[in-house]
Amino acid sequence: MATLLTESGDFTVAATDGLWLDAADVARATGWTLKPEGMCRDEACVPLPASATRDGRVDLAAFWRLLGAPVVADSTNAVWSLGRAAEERNDALAGLVAPDFTLPDLEGNLHTLSALRGKKVFLSTWASW
């Protein structure tokens, strides 16, 4: 079992040989779906080299590097952190659509920024430290 930290959250997945995962787990944790033409998300597909897929499984770390996006693991390859490429963030911000997120309040209730459409929003960060 491995823990996968992605933009969608924290996931427990059955990983083998590094970060080889069942395609269904990849889709659940990253939004990327394995299709005959490659890995697809929204309208876009990225061809996957034969070395990175086998029997419905995907070498997610290899795919992530192929995307040019950052990936790092702990010393035991049990926890993987997958991020967004710099240019992807820059492009997203340049569209000026406020990047969406879902976060808990103190009681654990989840709130999603985009649910506030129709209101002006003052989004501010702070910290206890």
């Binding site: 659509v97 990047p99 997120f101 976060l103 985009s114 003052f122 989004l123 501010s124």
Partner: peptide
């Protein structure tokens, strides 16, 4: 806990803020 908002919006300190209009635009 992941400082996700700082990562998404490119914020490097606190307090930082961004203003978002009714259409969800910065």
């Amino acid at each position: 806990v992941d400082h996700r908002v700082s990562a998404l919006y490119g914020m490097v300190n606190v307090p930082r803020a961004t203003w978002i209009d009714e259409a969800g635009r910065i």
